[in-house]
Each structure stands twice: as structure tokens, then as C-alpha cells.
Amino acid sequence: MFRCSKLIFVAILLLLGSCTEDNQQKITGQPPGPYKMTLTAPHRIEVGQEVILTTEITHSDTGMPVENLRTLHERRVHNFITNLDFTNFSHIHHEDFNALKAEQIESAKLSFPYTFPTPGKYRMVSEFTDSKRSWIKHFNLEVGYSALINDHHLKKTNTNTVQNYTGTLSFASQTPIAGAPIEMEVYISRDNVPVSDLKLWLGSEAHVAIWRDDGKYFGHTHAYTPAMRQMMGGLAHQKKSHATNPKMIQEMMLRMMSQPSELIFEGPTIPVFYIFPQPGKYVMHFECAPNGNPIVFQFIINVLPSAKILPTHEHAANEIQ
């Protein structure tokens, strides 16, 4: 009996030890890699209650903070929060609420307030840039005690109305196929009148966050500018002709680097380029700012598999690329 009590006591101590001070939980972002990112949040998150979410980024090998994260689209760390039935979405940053202080830049420890609107399972994806590339970390959170299993019945939709704005998604040439580049376009109208007053929001006419409906395969992209289109044209040409022209690419690169951010797509359409990595149903959150007021459209896209399983005599020639 005494031994049992002792075990229970130790178990309680261990449980309490898993919480940080002030009953906070610290979650390590996935996947692993050269950077470790943690998210500190209350151990118990209640619906409708504002909480402070704190992210911290360190070098995995030394544990030292990543100093001077690069600013990308006007922010150091981009956070995308969705519940896993995709009825709520936020694109949110520390700098939306407070200017960065020197100690925050040095410690790579940023915070922002957030109110989870409904119970259920949430995913936060955070993106930051260091050493010439961006890194993405995923965090899972549970909110409230009821409806912890997110149930959703997403149907393909290419039209969405938010406030008095309607966004309509169309594809340039074909139904999206996994692994194949696809050009899409979103047409935006206000009270059925095409808009012509789109503004840059965080450095781009559009910010797009995409998940497959199982919460996997997050992607983040922006408006498909003419400069990017030119480069993709070069890539397509290279693929077809197997020719190399590094000088041409170098010139394009220098031209692009010398261009300041500029508003190109004032409306009503914004093109987007994407490659869906796997087949399935995807949820696309399309954020734009007509008249400078950011709104988010949601579209549901069916992506077909890339390959047909052919009978053996129909297999393509065994050309390895």
C-alpha cells in the first residue's frame, strides 16, 4: 500500500515536471534539422480565451539562439494556424502586434496573442529564413475538451464569398495533377464588380497557404509575377532541350534582384503558380488586400494522381532522366 502511494506520488511529480512554469507547455516543432523551434503555449487552451504563443528558434547542435533571422515579406517568422477541419485560418506574426526589440532579435524569441475560436485539433506552421533558405516547422495543439476529433466534409469549391468580396479560382490549362506545375488565377469582385484596388500586403498581392485535407503537405506561395513566369519559361525550355545557358539565367537573376517590390496585380485577377506534391483534396487559403484590407478566401481543390498504372506492355521507354 505504502509502495503504491509512493509510486503515485512520483507519477504526479513527473507529470507536474512536464509543465513549465505558469502551467505552460513547450512543444518542439517537426521535422528535426539544423534548427530547433519550440512553441510555448498554455498547457490547457480554452476556446475564446486569448493566449500568448511564443516561438523560439535555436541551432540544434549548440542550443544557441539564431540571431538575426532574415526578414521575408516584412516579417521574421510567419505563422499559419488552422484547425484540422479547416474552418478557421490565421496568418499571424509577432510584428502584427509589437515592433521587434533588440533582445527579441538576438534571442529569436517572438510572441503574439491568439484566440482559438473553436475546440478541436489545430496545426500551426511556422516559417523562418536563415542561411539562404526558409525552414518550416509544424506544431500540433489541442483546444478545449470537446470535439477533439475534427470532422470535416470538404467539397470541391472554386468560389468563396467573404464580406462583400467574391473570389473565383480557375486553372489556366488543366485539372491539377500531382507533381505537375499548375498556373491558377483568382478573380476578385466586390458586390459583383471586379476590383481594381488590390494593394500589396506584406510585400505581395497574395499570400497563399495550402494544406492537403489530412493536414499534410503544407505549402506557402505568393502572386506569380512576370519575372517568375520568365524564369519558369526558362526552366521549361531547359527541361525540353537539355541545353544549358547559365549566362542568361545570371542576367535574369541580376535584373530580378535589382527590382524593388512593386504592385503588379491591381485586380481583378491574381495569378498563382504551384506544384501539388501528392494527389488528394487540398485546402487553399488565399489572402489578398483589396483596398488595403486583408481578406482570406478558401478554395478546395482536387488534385489527381500523376501516374496511371499501365499494363506492362504499355510502359514507357526506359529512359532515365
Partner: peptide
């Protein structure tokens, strides 16, 4: 070269993802 150029060129495109490189997320 092209892909390095894409990745290193425009501010905001110094990275993986952004519609081009996202095949291995998650």
C-alpha cells in the same frame, strides 16, 4: 543554375517552398 537563381534572386524568394520547392514539406 536556374534553381539556384530562383532561390537566390528576388527578396522573398531566397528559400525553399514558395510554390516551387514544397515537395518535401511534412
Amino acid at each position: 543554375y536556374i534553381l539556384l537563381a530562383i532561390s537566390l534572386a528576388t527578396p522573398g524568394y531566397v528559400n525553399s517552398g514558395h510554390g516551387f520547392f514544397n515537395s518535401f514539406e511534412g
